[in-house]
Design a protein around this nucleic acid. Structure first.
Lengths: 207, 207
DNA sequence: CCATAATGTGAGTAATTGCTCATATTCCAC
DNA sequence: GTGGAATATGAGCAATTACTCACATTATGG
């Protein structure tokens, strides 16, 4: 390892050619992670897989972790896009149907390239400097809040910021778990829905 | 790294002296992880911190991962012991009170040496060969099942194995999250309880 | 076309580190 | 005691790997 760790990339991709190189690097990195796991994930392997030279990797990524972080951001963007669509599509639908849509969105986002995404989630813990809220995390909260706001009157309890956070934590954990266990999407949906609705409506105090 | 990876330790600790050495190694490993994180966690550092030689580490642990796994097992044992106590202490208490006790148990287990435990949980993902149920995981399920069985009649829904699993996943994720956010134990308890009770009782279908 | 900027190359370096093994020390059974 | 087993030592090996840099190639603007 080098003595001093570079913080910024040497170059920003300006021309079309270099933008393509960046894409190639990212995809190669993803494939290496899928094929060889974290253990076999090294920058030389990425370069080889991408059919380019290591030097090129370091033109656009200051260090290996930056490359991993770029993959994480890419995954988060894809997830967010799906959730955004789900929230849009749920307009006019019932609360249960709406929740089901965002649950499906999350399941789908994780399911494609499941192996890769699982590794990326693991790395996220290591790489994110202690609870730094990403903008992605912020938007996810906003999206869920917007969806719930549409059903305010059906929900007995107040939906504050903490509740939104909890719902996200719960669904994320359950989605991860479902993927690990290779649950069918139907089964996974049902169980996550149960948890979310339960959290929203709380125990029956009327028994 | 060596070409061939040793699977079993060279020696089992037989005498009192070596049993103490093993304890010293484990504690030194824990302290290195706490002080320098995963990045600074190497066997030479562990040996130095423990005031022993690297060779001794490899007498009782076949490789570095085995050492980490031993720390994980140690944490799981401590957690399990606390939960066991909580389940025992909850006898005769209400369901809510009982749930609160096991939630507190989990929070406490994580809270002491929080930094260390957080790292260990991260490593667990990497080290456990794809969803191999530990005996610890099994016993935790049994304990929760036993507790819930005492309140069968209060719970409308059937409590099958999947439900227990979900409850554990939910509480674990929320406890982790609470620790990360430095929530007070009271606030954390309240939120986890809400999630668990919600899951158990489900949404009010009677609205 | 030409000067200059952008991009690409890959052999090599420097550092890290998991782990071994020949040897020394301590313990215990008899 | 004494011999053998258990335990401890730590210098150093072997392998890995993130990253650099001097140089080549390609694109672009004037």
């Amino acid at each position: 390892m080098p003595v001093k760790r570079r913080i910024k990339a040497r170059k920003q991709p300006l021309q079309q050619r270099s933008r393509e190189t960046v894409a190639v690097i990212l995809e190669a990195a993803a494939r290496v992670l899928e094929a060889r796991g974290l253990e076999g994930f090294n920058t030389n392997a990425v370069a080889e897989r991408g059919g380019i030279s290591v030097g090129s990797v370091y033109q656009y990524f200051p260090n290996k972790d930056a490359l991993t972080l770029a993959l994480i951001a890419r995954f988060e963007d894809a997830l967010l896009a799906k959730v955004r669509d789900a929230v849009a599509a749920s307009e006019g639908k019932s609360l249960t149907a709406s929740l089901n849509l965002i649950i499906r969105a999350q399941l789908e986002a994780h399911a494609e390239r499941a192996g890769l995404n699982r590794i990326l989630e693991t790395e996220e813990d290591r790489l994110r400097p202690a609870s730094s809220g990403t903008s992605a995390a912020g938007e996810l909260k906003d999206l869920v809040a917007a969806l719930l706001a549409r059903h305010r009157r059906e929900i007995a309890r107040p939906i504050d910021d903490d509740a939104i956070e909890d719902l996200i934590v719960i669904s994320r954990a359950m989605v991860d778990h479902a993927l690990q266990q290779d649950l069918s999407q139907a089964a996974a949906s049902r169980r996550v829905l149960r948890a979310m609705e339960g959290y929203l409506f709380g125990p029956r105090r009327d028994l």
